[in-house]
């Protein structure tokens, strides 16, 4: 009854009270409320009558609303017994996608290798981020578990995009120059010292930024912190300092993110 009255009020308000008078108020609480109001503060004209009715009906509709009986049940997803990724993983993933997307694959591999499933806060961002890369999407679905298939069924926009190119097995996802590849293969201390020496000697510059990021992205874990510390000591132009700081940040992020995802 209140809903019908509200629709009548809307119809009058659309046309204006110059063209149509306010509707009669249905008997009940609303009528009592408006009668009480009119007794104390009589409305001056049709417009004011309509405003009083609108205000009272709005309050009644909001305050006296009842929930609907539950006619649907949520779809139950198969249980995934793996533990969810630690809470800190969300921040790492957001930083990786924003600053170092080259290591998304490594991060997903670490999630899988650690026996984790994606925490609920990560499932949607990971599916969205990886859907254009068939290899990453496959990995993402694996670490997300059964909930991924259910989400994709419900929100088809989360499904992997078929246009994505699957890289050939021979493709190196993190290519580096032969000189840098040699540095990468050295023991941790030597690797850090060699990279710092290259910066000091000016044999690396911002022109090689992408290759250097790839280098740090493929460093074995024992080399990460020594390299980060060595890069902290680099001196030079603001551009070189900025590059060294960026690489050191990547090394530390990898170290922290991978350590956090180690199997418990």
């Amino acid at each position: 009854m209140i809903q019908q009255h509200w629709e009548e009020l809307t119809a009058v308000a659309l046309l204006g009270t110059d063209r149509r008078p306010p509707p009669p108020v249905p008997a009940g609480h609303l009528a009592d409320l408006l009668a009480d109001l009119a007794a104390r503060h009589p409305a001056a004209d049709r417009a004011e009558v309509l405003l009083h009715q609108v205000a009272a009906t709005t309050v009644l509709r909001r305050a006296a609303r009842l929930p609907r009986p539950a006619t649907v049940a949520p779809a139950v997803v198969d249980h995934d017994s793996r533990p969810p990724t630690p809470p800190g993983a969300e921040g790492d993933f957001r930083r990786i996608t924003a600053e170092f997307p080259a290591i998304v694959g490594e991060w997903l591999e670490a999630v899988a290798a650690g026996g984790w499933r994606l925490g609920a806060e990560l499932v949607v961002p990971v599916l969205v981020h990886t859907r254009r890369d068939p290899t990453l999407a496959e990995l993402a679905h694996r670490v997300a578990g059964p909930v991924a298939a259910w989400l994709v069924q419900t929100w088809p926009g989360l499904a992997p995009r078929p246009a994505g190119r699957r890289p050939a097995p021979t493709d190196d996802p993190l290519p580096v120059t032969p000189e840098l590849a040699v540095v990468c293969g050295r023991p941790p201390g030597d690797c850090a010292a060699a990279l710092a020496a290259m910066f000091r000697a000016g044999t690396v510059s911002t022109a090689q930024r992408a290759m250097l990021i790839n280098l740090v992205a493929r460093l074995p874990r024992p080399s990460l912190l020594p390299v980060a510390r060595a890069l902290d000591t680099v001196d030079g132009s603001p551009a070189v300092l900025g590059l060294a700081a960026h690489l050191a940040a990547l090394a530390r992020l990898r170290q922290r993110a991978l350590t956090e995802l180690d199997p418990r």
């Binding site: 929930p67 539950a70 649907v72 997803v77 609920a120 806060e121 259910w150 929100w155 989360l158």
Partner: peptide, 20 residues
């Protein structure tokens, strides 16, 4: 009972993923 949600799809999907 049930009540309507007012949220973008990504938020509802996160809720769904959280509750499964």
């Amino acid at each position: 009972s049930m009540v309507p949600l007012d949220a973008p799809g990504a938020v509802v999907a996160t809720l769904a993923a959280a509750g499964s």
